[in-house]
Design a protein around this nucleic acid. Sequence first.
DNA 1: ACAAGATATGCGAATATTCGAATACTATGA
DNA 2: TCATAGTATTCGAATATTCGCATATCTTGT
Lengths: 114, 114
Amino acid sequence: MDDDSFYCLHSELCKTLANPKRQMILDRLRDGEVSVGEIASQTDIPQATLSQHLSILRSRGVVRTRRAGSSIYYAIANPKIITAFDLITDVLRESLGEQARTAGTDESEKAKTA
Amino acid sequence: MDDDSFYCLHSELCKTLANPKRQMILDRLRDGEVSVGEIASQTDIPQATLSQHLSILRSRGVVRTRRAGSSIYYAIANPKIITAFDLITDVLRESLGEQARTAGTDESEKAKTA
DNA sequence: ACAAGATATGCGAATATTCGAATACTATGA
DNA sequence: TCATAGTATTCGAATATTCGCATATCTTGT
């Protein structure tokens, strides 16, 4: 696999995580499998929209599915996804905390020296 | 901060990583700070495009900058970003390896039972 | 076979991202 | 101050994402 393909696949995977509704869904799945109906009742995501997002998560291999009767249970396919998710949460938190201190040190902030 | 805001900020951060060119850039920065010109010469990204992506990385706090003469050096702001990046690489690799074995077990693959 | 509950898909409009070209800004040296 | 190297911004067109609606599919119970 060449570098370009790698970066494309990698960013496809990141894109899959880069949506508030899909993050909401993943957060519901972090403690184990949950059915579509359960996710729908725990969030304010309309059923069709929810199904579309689940379809995206499925197609990228982020979640796996199991049918039980007429319900379909979704689960995180690889726990490392959750670890990455939480790591980004850390970065976000640290970045928010640091924002006050480092505001204005950016080299592109030319207005400050004018 | 309410949940919606959190998921939005989190996915903003993920979106920042979810682009092949920005991943290429981050990969160049993983061993320490590099100037814009150096990144430009190591990749095939045109200068204007490169600068736009750097601007996005800057605005989300993913990188920090330092001016040295007429050059501007970019560096990863928080090493956890790289850890998350590598974790997603793991997921990608494991997912690609597993693809052959689990192909067709998806509940949405109805065609198989027809 | 039929009805009902649970989930998935197709489509179109609104919105967001991406890129290249042109241009502007900043610092250094003559 | 002027020229030049290095970097940033603006703008417009092409493309991709997102969402809601309508509808289709699948499964179970009768």
